[in-house]
Computed example of a mutant assay.
Amino acid sequence: MNTERGSIALITGANRGIGYEIAVGLGRLGMTVLMGARDLDQGEPAAARLCGDGIDAQAVRLDVTSGHDPAGAAAWIDAQYGRLDVLVNNAGISGARQAQQPGSADLDTLRAVFATNVFGAVAVTEATLPLLRRSPRARIVNVTSGLGSMTRMTDPHDYFTGLPATLGYSPSKSALNHVTVQYAKHLAPEAILVNAADPGPCATDFTKDLPGVTRTAVDGARIVVHLATLEENGPTGGFFNEAGRVPW
């Protein structure tokens, strides 16, 4: 039986890039996909494209850093559907790289990165948790990055060790990984599976300045869709990419 068909999924930052392809992937499985977007002028055309492909999609105004948008989105989902089966915390920003260098860091830039990548994910999760608890098999996926792996960052044989130091983006993803573990611990007795997904480097607007990136947003979305549709005996509190577990 296709247990995904008829499920309700909310994806933040879903109007483009990997978030959009996550919505496509879940929609093709028969889920209703709610596409969170800061700007409905961008979210609504994205949802319309999916509807044109036969996917049940709706745009939802959702700025994860807003003081009221997460609660407002949760109230709308409650009124329309009464529950939520899948939450994908995908919204994220990289921030200006030069403003994140140790020794010359701009604290406002760091705060903005953490506000979206960490506190935004927590805000949306907290707002939607009552709805997720009504689902017979709720799943939460936090879209993180391999750059959040402290093991890889400190492995002299890994190319990550040669990357420029940053105080914003990479540490924010490490923090999101730990947030994932804490939610997984808390929700394990309720059989709500919570995992972190590393899409890997993909050729999107997010990585347009990085050389040699050939993987697509479709490639990056696969691990997220997989974790969002885990069976009941699936893992929780883990950090995964397409190849398997990523070291913390």
Rank of each mutant, 00 (worst) to 15 (best):
residue 20 Y to F: 15
residue 126 E to S: 04
residue 128 T to P: 03
residue 77 I to A: 07
residue 227 L to P: 10
residue 128 T to S: 02
residue 245 R to Y: 01
residue 110 L to N: 10
residue 71 A to Q: 14
residue 181 V to M: 09
residue 242 E to D: 13
residue 7 S to R: 14
residue 162 G to K: 13
residue 107 L to H: 12
residue 175 A to G: 07
residue 16 R to T: 14
residue 37 A to M: 11
residue 196 A to H: 00
residue 104 S to T: 14
residue 116 T to C: 05
residue 58 Q to G: 14
residue 75 A to Q: 15
residue 171 P to C: 12
residue 139 R to A: 00
residue 221 A to P: 14
residue 121 A to F: 01
residue 42 Q to H: 15
residue 147 L to C: 13
residue 142 N to H: 14
residue 237 G to D: 02
residue 31 M to F: 12
residue 106 D to V: 13
residue 68 H to Y: 06
residue 200 G to S: 04
residue 141 V to P: 00
residue 158 D to K: 10
residue 219 D to F: 07
residue 1 M to C: 09
residue 119 F to R: 00
residue 212 G to I: 12
residue 160 F to C: 06
residue 17 G to E: 01
residue 245 R to V: 02
residue 112 A to W: 06
residue 136 P to H: 09
residue 62 L to Q: 11
residue 247 P to Y: 02
residue 210 L to I: 15
residue 52 G to I: 15
residue 32 T to M: 11
residue 186 H to S: 08
residue 47 A to N: 13
residue 248 W to M: 11
residue 222 R to A: 12
residue 101 Q to I: 15
residue 41 D to A: 15
residue 33 V to M: 11
residue 215 R to K: 15
residue 227 L to C: 07
residue 184 A to I: 03
residue 140 I to P: 03
residue 191 A to K: 14
residue 85 D to I: 02
residue 158 D to H: 14
residue 138 A to R: 10
